[in-house]
Amino acid sequence: MPYGFTTIYWRDMIRFVRFKTLLVSSLLQPALWLAFFGIAMSSSFDKLITGLPVVPGVHMIGYLTFMGAGIIAMTTLFTSLFGGIVILFDKNWGLMREILASPMNRNHIIFGIGLSGVTKSFIQAIIIMVFGILIGAAFFSGFTAVQTVVGVFGILAFVGMFALGFLFLSAAIAISMESPEGLQGVITLLTMPIFFASNALYPIDSFPAFLKILSVYNPMTLLITGIRYFAIGPDFIALGKHYQYTQSDILMAYFGLVVFATLTFGLAYWRFRKAVVT
């Protein structure tokens, strides 16, 4: 049955559009982050960095543009880590029994949840990009039309792979847990280091060595690197730091995300094989 995951996807999307408050808040929340945190931070940061040396010929970007990429990543992280919670609800309300007693392969549950999470993340990423540009983030500035299209697809490719990795992780945790409170605890515990040990809000170069190593291999950093490459360009200055990315940097970052998603899928696969829901 090769299309079983579309059934899971269909149902999860029904729930997404049917819970109006959830729908509106999940679309509004990233925009609010950008509006309040972004504008507040950038107005003070941009003042601080005036007077820092400028490299001639290199495009200098404001803080809003810099952290806009971080907000896309953060939103994707939150949405994905919570994406598996539906599995826990289904389990606790007995709905998972119908699915597990059906002939459908259990991998399709994982893929279905993954696909619907990716869809939600795409919608959110696009909203942030559009809203960011509206309030003054210099995404795709100086790009040709073709470069912009490539940029958007590049960002979505990174967002999608990153989202899958964390959705699989979330599904693996959810199928193993008993209570939504426990799941919430674990997820909160995970989001902190993943978000702050990354280049979302500040450069990681001045981190102490230990934190720096963590940050370099953090999937969050890989994602943000990809987003900045496709939204801003391979060569820019932000917060007084000169960023330069080569194509192989970007390929390696993407490869890192693929490895991460493969590992978390393996974890989810194992947890779903083990799951007994009666």
Partner: peptide
Amino acid sequence: EFHGRLYN
């Protein structure tokens, strides 16, 4: 409909 699809 969901059930029918689950069973292909």
